[in-house]
Amino acid sequence: MMEFLSVLWFFLIFLLIAGYFVLDGFDLGIGTLSPFIAKNDEERAILRRSIGPVWDGNEVWLLTAGGALFAAFPDAYATTFSGFYLAVMLVLFGLIVRAVSFEFGAGDPHWRKLWDACFFVGSLLPALLLGVAVGNIFAGIPMDAIGDYVGMPLFGLITPFTLLTGLLGLSMFLAAGASWAALKTPLDSELRARAIALRMPLQVVSLVLFVIVSIYALILIGPDMDANLSVLRILFAVLVVAGLVVAMIVGKLQDNDLKSFLAQSASMIALVALLACSMFPVLVNATPDSIGPAITIYNAASSELSLACMSIILCIGLPLVLAYHVIIYRTFRGRISAADLKH
């Protein structure tokens, strides 16, 4: 039972991360793209309005993933959050200023520029650094016997590999943002034309970065990967590529923004699934010179009772959460119109 629960929670954590990357991913993308595709106040308002009703709920996926990691694998939570201290703080400050920039920007014309800047920086920092963090737990960090990070603060976390994973994350978020913008902006607007013009190039960049990161990852920790999951890894790698390619094709040839956005999102889910299957059963890898061992589901999991309680909480909570999302996305479906901006 313990074995089953540990494995289950390993994949559930990644499921929550996938939920966050897919949903808040396009919010972060919109925020980062905003200064480049919105040329006036009205266009900026349309972009903000496109994520206005949903961004907060989307962000809760991150809090859920963080809480679940704390509950299910406390050692992994403690090591990563304290080890990546300054990087986590930068993500945090980004999320903080982004959250308030929404509500404050609309109500304070004199400080609009400041809040617009906060919206951009607050989206860019998480969009870039989340990928860097994933790169680090994937490639490994030096730890002492208890599992405390012993490398150099912040700069020790930046390597060619983690920079590439950061850029891959960023490009995937930006592509999702462009897809969402294309889906929600008025049909014949210049804003939509600019979003579409960026969508495909961003998808191509994501594809190229994905291939590079995959090869690099295989060289780095390829031999350590769980052999039983190799079929799944190949499947998910194919799905990442297929999702992006389909997103490009339906976006370009059929001009179908919804299908393109969904394919883009599927590609993101496949990417997180691939990550999970490549790391299993490791949560935080250790570098070769590390004193402490890698943090795995076998040495970091909470007790059986704790995991069982968490499973019950999730069984009750997740259907509710999905229902809320159906309600909110249905209520606010369709493109933004001029009337919507008067709120």
Binding site: D56, G57, A71, S302, G317, L320
Partner: peptide, 28 residues
């Protein structure tokens, strides 16, 4: 972690999603 993480996760699942989604309804 064995005890303290669960209420935090439950708070996000049961409360934060509820608040944020329906605040979206109130706002827009």
């Amino acid at each position: 972690g064995d005890i303290f993480g669960a209420p935090l996760a439950a708070e996000a699942l049961f409360a934060f999603f509820l608040e944020s989604v329906f605040l979206g309804v109130l706002l827009f």
